[in-house]
Design a protein around this nucleic acid. Structure first.
Lengths: 130, 130
DNA sequence: ATAAACCATAACATTGATGTGAGAGTCAAG
DNA sequence: CTTGACTCTCACATCAATGTTATGGTTTAT
């Protein structure tokens, strides 16, 4: 099938499909006229690539084990586990950082609201509640 | 004080200080020779900017309320609270996404290890523990 | 006066997947 | 044969703060 059809079937843009080829994730054969010729299996392979991308893996990381995953069960690709573990560490670090920022922001918000409240009460303004 | 001294006192690179000026976060006066002339207060202002950046706010967002924060207490800058709340929403969304990826990864890792274990047991290989 | 240290502006590089557009070849239907 | 819908490659744009380098003026110390 040609690139347009694969794009429609998977929802992945033509631009991205060409990029996957450039990154050696999905290299189709070519028609005599130079058009890309994707096998029907490509649909599933694109979905696989999208799944790994959604885990935050880079195309380079994916390229490191995709050839194996396509042929075998994921569990028997030695390359996969360390990549997963490294990514998990990374994700955990990012979560910690975001949670740190999160509590900082919550603290600032609380602090502002308390100060505003105190200000109103000092001024004797009406406090509208409920 | 000149830019080099401010850079040393705050630990922020000269490049970044010039960028802050470009973004209207901290605009110093100039000496006759064109050199930037920072007031002593700039040290504290740079620290303030860095704090907001560490919360993940963009220079544009910071520029939106910094003029106010410098003059008043943060609590009385109307612009601050909505920016904080918006950023908090954003952070919460990012945390949720990362946690989703996190459990996905943990699931994949568990699945792989179970499959490998089952494989070993089927093959009667020695299982080295402890 | 000369060298070292400092300052200025300007512009390009980084990151990574994807958008976008130019210029040109191919193919099917009318 | 022409029009429209595909396709090709190449290359620049995006985001955002910061690094880096080039080129040249200024100040300070020797």
């Amino acid at each position: 099938m040609k690139i347009g059809e694969l794009s429609k079937r998977t929802g992945v843009s033509i631009r991205s499909l060409r990029y996957y080829e450039e990154q050696n994730l999905l290299v189709p054969s070519r028609h005599d006229n130079g058009y890309r010729n994707y096998s029907p299996l490509a649909v599933e392979q694109v979905r696989t690539i999208q799944f790994y991308l959604s885990l935050g893996l880079s195309t380079e990381q994916i390229a490191g084990f995709l050839h194996c995953v396509i042929k075998n069960k994921e569990a028997f690709c030695q390359e996969v586990l360390p990549v997963y573990r490294q990514k998990l560490e990374e994700i955990n670090g990012q979560i910690r950082l975001l949670q740190h920022i999160q509590s900082n922001l919550e603290e600032r918000i609380q602090s502002i609201m308390h100060e505003q409240q105190a200000h109103k009460e000092r001024d004797g303004s009406y406090v509208v509640t409920g």
